[in-house]
């Protein structure tokens, strides 16, 4: 049985889609069988970020409405054989996602893949709650900036109440992925400190992804950043994050600082 991950944030534009593609590709590059599912119905973008936009035949809504079989809607990556994409619909809206339909699709994907990564839409409405519904693990994508942290807090609340795990009295595993971290602004003291964000949200840190041109370049050519340039700083940070996701106890380095810090911060368990 595969694990279901939701990549979520509340706030828009913080790097969910970029991270879904990069983490999915990184896992697949290590030989794991991965599917990334675009839940942003009506505004799909994961296909573009992964460079599969010209090959979309059917989408999640087609599958849920019974117009296509799941196997027909899955798009296999041309570079990494074990990486697949299930695109969202561009022309229909979120109302076409039914809870029963989503449940069936996720169950089928879980039995065929090691990892099912759900790229959530922004917001706290239906699309976002359906994307998190069946998750075993949540990756909360946050920028070191006040409104993003506030929205992440809100999303953590939803994860603890609206997911199936929460409803069954189980604990959903939550991780913080701090993205678009700008070492220069941090140096000048104009950015929230990593420790501050961790203290406020009090969920363990999965990684820190630096703000980088490499991310833009990767999305221009249509490749997850771990594939576009595997040695770039953001790619390395995503590779490390996947190792932590698999349980490895790797220290987190703050971009721009040599000192690595682990100890009480990374080790802290969710409250």
């Amino acid at each position: 049985m595969g694990k279901v991950i939701v990549v979520t944030s509340g706030k828009g534009g913080v790097g969910k889609t970029t991270s879904s593609a990069a983490l999915g590709a990184a896992l697949a590059q290590n030989g794991e069988k991965v599917v990334v599912v675009d839940f942003d119905v009506g505004l799909r973008n994961l296909d573009l970020v992964m460079g599969a936009e010209r090959r979309v035949v059917y989408d999640l809504v087609n599958v849920i409405q019974g117009e296509a079989k799941l196997t027909q809607a899955l798009i296999r990556d041309k570079r990494v054989e074990t990486l697949y994409l299930l695109p969202a619909s561009q022309t229909r809206d979120k109302d076409n996602l039914t809870p029963e339909g989503v449940e069936k699709v996720i169950a089928a994907l879980k039995s065929a893949f090691d990892w099912v990564i759900c790229d959530s839409p922004a917001g706290i409405e239906r699309g976002a709650t359906l994307a998190m519904r069946h998750a075993d693990i949540a990756i909360v994508v946050t920028n070191p900036e006040v409104s993003s942290v506030r929205d992440s807090d809100r999303i953590i609340g939803l994860l603890d109440s609206k997911t199936l795990k929460a409803e069954n009295g189980e604990r959903i595993e939550k991780h913080l992925l701090l993205t678009r971290y700008d070492a220069n602004r941090a140096e000048r003291g104009d950015m929230l400190k990593v420790d501050d964000v961790l203290e406020i949200l009090s969920i363990p840190l999965l990684g820190i992804i630096p703000e980088s041109m490499d991310v833009l370049r990767a999305s221009n050519v249509g490749a997850p950043v771990t594939l576009a340039d595997g040695r770039s700083a953001p790619a390395l940070a995503y590779f490390e994050a996947t190792r932590r996701l698999k349980g490895e106890d790797l220290p987190v380095t703050i971009p721009g600082e040599k000192r690595s810090f682990l100890g009480k911060i990374f080790g802290r368990k969710a409250a």
Partner: peptide, 20 residues
């Protein structure tokens, strides 16, 4: 595959423009 040519270096914006 043509895409790989873009990875080597150089500008990525032309690729973005063409894909869009």
């Amino acid at each position: 595959m043509k895409l790989f040519g873009f990875f080597s270096r150089g500008q990525s914006a032309p690729a973005a423009r063409e894909r869009l």
